[in-house]
Amino acid sequence: MFIKISYKILGAIGTLLQYGCVTHCALEYIGDFVVCTGPSMEPTIYSNDVLFTEHVSPRLRRIHKGDIVIAKCPSNPCQHICKRVTGLPGDKIYNGFSTYVVPIGHVWLEGDNHYNSTDSRMYGPVPQGLLRGRAMCKIWPPNDVTIFTTNFIHHE
């Protein structure tokens, strides 16, 4: 009797471990959900909006201008940022009276809320290796579900 119960418990633990590993791999390598905080992407994304992000495009370096991405913050690697790609490698960026050329292996990120965003205008080009995901859609709040496409660029 004890052996039979032990086998059932071990079988259940094994099944849980398998599902846990599959879930971990899916969230790490395919896509996940992100809660955004802060005003830098307003009016496109507000604080506490939930996004679904995919992780394949950044790994394959298939990011385009206009994409909204989640990246590790260059000035604080413990923090993630949500910004729009406004420059790709080789692009000239005009920031006030300065001109930058985005180096190979980097992108230029800016928040849609230019007056309240810490972004590449402050810390410069961001290495593509810091990109974690590309926002596919906003899923929360339900009354503001939005699918993001590359041509969805906010203009002031």
Rank of each mutant, 00 (worst) to 15 (best):
T23Y: 05
P142M: 15
N48E: 13
F152R: 05
M136H: 04
C82Q: 06
T44H: 01
C36Y: 09
G90K: 08
H24I: 05
M122F: 12
L131G: 00
T23L: 01
C21Y: 03
N116P: 04
D49I: 09
Q128C: 09
A12F: 14
V126D: 08
P89V: 05
I68D: 00
V85S: 00
P127M: 04
C25W: 10
G124A: 09
K65R: 05
N143A: 12
F2A: 15
F97Y: 02
H106V: 04
A71H: 02
F97S: 06
T15I: 09
V56Q: 08
L130P: 10
T149E: 09
I68W: 01
E156N: 04
Q128M: 11
L27G: 05
R134H: 00
Q128R: 10
Y7F: 15
P74S: 03
D112V: 05
T15V: 09
K138Y: 02
H114I: 03
V69E: 01
Y100M: 04
I3S: 15
A26S: 13
N48D: 13
E54P: 03
A26R: 11
T99I: 07
I68E: 00
S40Q: 10
I153Y: 07
I9Y: 14
D67Q: 01
I68R: 01
G66C: 03
L27E: 05
I63K: 01
G20T: 03
L130N: 12
G66H: 00
I104E: 11
P43T: 12
K138P: 07
H114T: 02
D49T: 04
K4N: 15
K92S: 04
Y46V: 12
C137Q: 09
L88I: 00
V22D: 06
M1R: 14
N116M: 02
R84T: 00
N143V: 14
V85G: 01
V22F: 07
I81D: 06
E28S: 12
D32K: 09
D119K: 01
D91F: 09
G105T: 06
I147G: 04
